[in-house]
């Protein structure tokens, strides 16, 4: 099991990387970030690019910067950097929980934030976090820069709205409003596996009532999804067990056609969507202040 032959380029700047993209058939080029998803595809020859464009030497694509409105995370920042960041752990705990749930430490040591986003696996944590935070994606092409909102970024299985010839350079992560409670739940068969289903929840509680509830599921559809029907049940409702039950039923109804595969049936995933979204929202309610 060895990759099919390919040429290799390791540009040092974004301009150089875009130049290389411009000179090649874009169907034949694969961009490599951390390689923790691409290398298996190469090893198994499920991907056979004629050119691998390695982004690991491009300057200015990694690191975390804090601004008043939130974080700017370079696309090539490893998960390990987020995991080790006191800022992320203390100020963006939902992002931190989503990070440490990914794979095992060796994968997080090399896997990048941008790589996971662009891979867009429907069962991975970061796309769901992107919807929970309303992250923004900065992409560069020879035509310049554009910003894609999280809700427009994930299209379907392993597919984003990034066009061929564009490179993701930065992820902007807004700070959640003060007092927002959060919850994170996922079920996997083994520690470190992709989730069968996972749920992220955020909510504020004002005057004893739920405000701006948000439910995001992963592993339940062809991409990470918000569940507006479930959110609507909670808006203005008391943060109670009864409200959670109504919300859970709405989530169950909304997840009409989840994946069905060797890991879990569609029926089981639907039920998990209900159970995990309730648990995540329950956590969020208890953390809201």
């Amino acid at each position: 099991m060895k990759p099919a032959p390919f040429e290799y380029a390791a540009p040092k700047t974004i301009a150089e990387a875009l130049d290389i993209l411009g000179q090649n058939d874009l169907d034949e080029v694969k961009l490599m970030a951390g390689g923790q998803s691409l290398m298996p595809l190469l090893n198994m020859r499920l991907a056979r690019p004629s050119l691998v464009l390695d982004l690991n030497h491009v300057e200015g694509l990694d690191g975390i910067r804090e601004e008043s409105s939130g974080l700017r995370v370079g696309a090539m920042t490893t998960k390990r950097v987020l995991e080790d960041s006191d800022l992320v752990r203390s100020q963006y705990p939902l992002l931190w929980e989503s990070t440490v749930a990914i794979g095992h430490a060796p994968i997080r040591n090399r896997g990048t934030v941008g790589g996971s986003m662009v891979q867009a696996d429907p069962a991975s944590e970061y796309p769901a976090a992107a919807l929970a935070f309303d992250m923004e994606f900065v992409v560069m092409s020879s035509a310049g820069e554009r910003v894609i909102q999280a809700e427009d970024f994930f299209v379907t299985y392993l597919t984003t709205s990034i066009e061929p010839g564009e490179i993701l350079t930065e992820i902007r992560i807004p700070r959640l409003p003060p007092g927002t409670g959060w919850g994170f739940q996922e079920l996997a068969r083994r520690h470190g596996d992709f989730a069968i289903v996972g749920a992220l929840a955020t909510v504020r509680v004002e005057s004893g009532l739920c405000c701006d509830p948000r439910i995001v599921l992963f592993g339940a559809a062809d991409r990470a999804i918000r569940v507006p029907a479930g959110e609507a049940c909670l808006e203005g409702a008391p943060p109670s067990e009864a409200s959670l039950t109504v919300m859970g039923d709405a989530v169950f109804d909304a997840v009409e056609d989840p994946l069905s595969d060797v890991h879990a049936s569609a029926e089981y995933r639907r039920d998990l969507a209900r159970v995990l979204s309730k648990r995540a929202m329950s956590e969020a309610m208890s953390r809201a202040s």
């Binding site: 290799y8 290398m39 198994m44 691998v52 390695d54 690991n56 095992h104 060796p106 994968i107 090399r110």
Partner: peptide, 27 residues
């Protein structure tokens, strides 16, 4: 396994555990 799941090929890269099957030699 040669796809990063089994951990048998672990090495240290700059002190951090890394799957050597998920890195190119040139990297």
């Amino acid at each position: 396994c040669e796809h990063g799941v089994c951990g048998i090929c672990n090495i240290l890269v700059d002190g951090q555990t890394t799957r050597s099957c998920l890195m190119l030699a040139v990297q």
